[in-house]
Amino acid sequence: MDKLLEVKDLAISFKTREGEVQAIRGVSFHVDKGETLAIVGESGSGKSVTSQAVMQLIPQPHGIYKRGEIWFDGQQLLGKTEKQMQRIRGKEIGMIFQDPMTSLNPTMKVGKQITEVLHAHEKMSRQAAYRRAVELLDLVGIPAPEQRFHQFPHEFSGGMRQRVVIAIALAANPKLLIADEPTTALDVTIQAQILELMKDLQQKIGTAIIFITHDLGVVAKMADRVAVMYAGQIVETGTAEEIFYDPRHPYTWGLLASMPSLDGQGGKLASIPGTPPDLIRLPKGDAFALRSAYAMKIDYKEEPPLYRVSDTHFVKSWLMHPHAPAAIPPEAVARKRRHLEEVYDHPVLVES
């Protein structure tokens, strides 16, 4: 497939009084046209900073682009002026943020917030923008869109506000949609509705999606490919099938094993011991070594390279070295995967 977005060896740091926070450390990934890439990991792993870097929203001057390239639809985004990026944001790349109430202007009617995007990027007349806004509200499943057009954000429920945010993000038919934990603030019923909405809209308009989340249940429902982030690096990447059925990194095992089972049959809830490393004072070697039951001596001395498992599956772990001892994922990993299959119907993967 054709690559729509390609990030190469991206490194970003932030200046603080305590020192330089190495938030992103050599991240590389790509998104093909029309596909969904899920970026998963704990809080502080670098997921949101990566998405903000694509949108060129890293705060200056504290944020520093150390190195790397960001190619979108054949153009290099790093180095573009703010005016140039304003023509890309919303028009070429849309973004859905985590909390819809903070994304929307509480003093402005929701219809006006949609038509602003249409006026800015599509140069529509007032009447044409109104008709398109009503169509978008209807498209994202908001009843009585003509009436809702004239209402304020506080008159909508949390799920309906998130639908408005999605309508704004889709207003100019972007080629790429970045969804930064868009369902975290919603209850599970509304979350399922929003996920179904996004899948349905993607099939209708063909938009590629970067879905940022810590919820592997969401990943099982949404993703074509998965990138697992830890301490500012991608430690494993592969198709959804490879990540769920053949995970190779101990951190991925930990994420899978720590998923709760709502049926009560999952046994004791597993957790990943310890805490993420200090990104100002990173430990030598593998950043996950201190939390891993599979760490070897070399993990405390040298950072592992990226090993190729298949054409689509790559793992950053010394366990992949030919001379490393065999390591078997904990039983909880297979148990939680079986639970996902029961919840989402076998298999856990989205249809291709």
Rank of each mutant, 00 (worst) to 15 (best):
E6P: 07
V7N: 11
V7H: 09
I12M: 06
V21T: 08
Q22A: 10
G26A: 12
F29R: 15
A38F: 03
I39T: 07
V40T: 10
V40S: 05
S43Y: 04
K47W: 04
V49R: 00
S51C: 15
Q56L: 08
Q60P: 02
H62W: 12
G74V: 14
G79W: 04
M85P: 01
P100A: 10
Q113E: 03
I114K: 09
E116V: 01
Q127S: 15
V134R: 03
E135K: 02
L136K: 03
G141K: 10
H150K: 08
F156Y: 14
A167Y: 11
L170C: 10
A171S: 14
N173S: 15
P174H: 08
L176Y: 13
L177C: 08
A192E: 11
I194H: 09
L195S: 05
L197C: 11
M198I: 15
T207H: 10
T213R: 08
D215C: 12
D215A: 11
G217N: 03
V218R: 03
D224F: 01
D224P: 10
R225G: 09
I234L: 06
G238K: 09
E242C: 02
I243W: 03
F244D: 03
S258V: 12
T275P: 00
D278I: 02
R281C: 02
L282M: 07
D286Q: 04
A287D: 04
A287V: 03
F288E: 13
Y300I: 02
E303A: 10
P304S: 02
L306H: 06
T312Y: 06
H313E: 09
K316G: 05
S317F: 02
L319H: 04
M320Y: 01
H321C: 08
A332M: 10
A334D: 09
K336N: 11
R338A: 15
E341S: 05
D345A: 06
D345E: 08
P347H: 00
P347R: 00
V348G: 00
V350L: 00
